[in-house]
Amino acid sequence: MKWIFGISNFLIGTCLASHACVIIERLGKEDFIFSRSKCTNCNQQLCLLDEIPLISYLILKGRCRYCKIHIPCEYFLTEFLGGFAFYKIDFSSIHDICTAIVLFSLLLAAISDYQVQEFDITLVLPALVISLQHIMNNFYRISTTDLIEFLPIFLFFLFETVRKKCGSGDLIVYLILSFYFNSKFANLTFLTASIALLIVFLGSKMSKKEPVAFIPFIYIGLIIQLLCK
């Protein structure tokens, strides 16, 4: 039965990730809740068979059914990663529902950061509120070890943000992960993200001066840490 639970959550995750892409695409432009999905090139409304996460992309071979324009593979990858992000979520648990909200908010930030190298603070506001409430409710459990693990990294990100060497978004995401999970979890997530970025950097022709969207890598690191818990 455990594998059925995992598959169900994976499918739910792909649907949430697919909707996250729609939200970022339409944010500030048009309704992303009730309006029908359509091709951004030919504006043709999509049918249900065109909107099945992962499967529709494979069946249509990454192209619009109507105008045949290529659909970026990033959409497929986002849905795939979304499936694993929510893989262990127990949607009958209030705590896990809060975790799902945090994960969805951070996914929105990751997609926005990938596309335009920044994100609106309102995208992660739910995650920020939940993480702040969580840390306040568990403030008495904070140990000296937690502070030692948190303060150096926090001060480093704060210093680099002031110097404008990294975006304030990275600092906000670090605070969310530290407050909601714990400092060790956040540090391991950022370490994994840094390793993933280094691998991509060495395996591609990225310029050292080219701005890098780091939050997508943080999200990948987050998924890996969640699966390893």
Rank of each mutant, 00 (worst) to 15 (best):
L103D: 08
S112L: 15
G167H: 05
F86A: 01
L77H: 14
C21T: 15
M206N: 02
A110Q: 14
L54N: 08
E30M: 06
C228M: 13
T144F: 14
I215S: 03
I97Y: 01
E79Y: 11
F185S: 07
F214P: 00
F80Q: 06
K88C: 05
E118S: 15
C42S: 08
E30S: 15
G82S: 10
K68Q: 11
Q44S: 13
A17P: 11
H134W: 10
S37R: 03
N9W: 04
F179Y: 08
K88P: 01
I148F: 11
R63C: 03
L46A: 08
G169M: 03
I142G: 04
N137H: 12
E118N: 13
S204K: 14
L54S: 06
G221Y: 09
D31K: 04
L108C: 13
H19Q: 10
Y114Q: 14
A20K: 09
S204C: 13
N43M: 03
M136L: 14
D90M: 09
L125W: 12
I220E: 03
A193M: 08
I199D: 09
P53V: 03
N182E: 09
C42L: 03
V102L: 09
L108E: 15
G83V: 06
I153F: 15
C39D: 09
K2E: 04
I135D: 07
V124Y: 02
V124T: 15
F190H: 05
C47E: 15
L103I: 15
T144N: 11
F104D: 02
K61A: 07
Y180I: 09
E25G: 09
L132V: 08
C42V: 02
F201R: 07
F119A: 12
Y174P: 00
S8E: 07
I176G: 06
C47N: 14
V102D: 01
M1P: 00
I218G: 00
T161M: 12
T14V: 07
Q225V: 02
I97S: 05
T78K: 04
Y180R: 02
L16R: 00
G83L: 05
Y87S: 08
R63D: 02
S178P: 01
L77W: 15
L151G: 02
C166W: 02
N187D: 13
G82C: 06
G221F: 06
V212W: 07
S93N: 14
S183V: 04
F76M: 05
R163F: 10
S93K: 13
Y140I: 07
L49I: 05
I7Y: 06
K88Q: 11
L58G: 08
I148W: 09
A196W: 04
K38E: 09
G203K: 09
S168R: 05
H70I: 13
C64V: 10
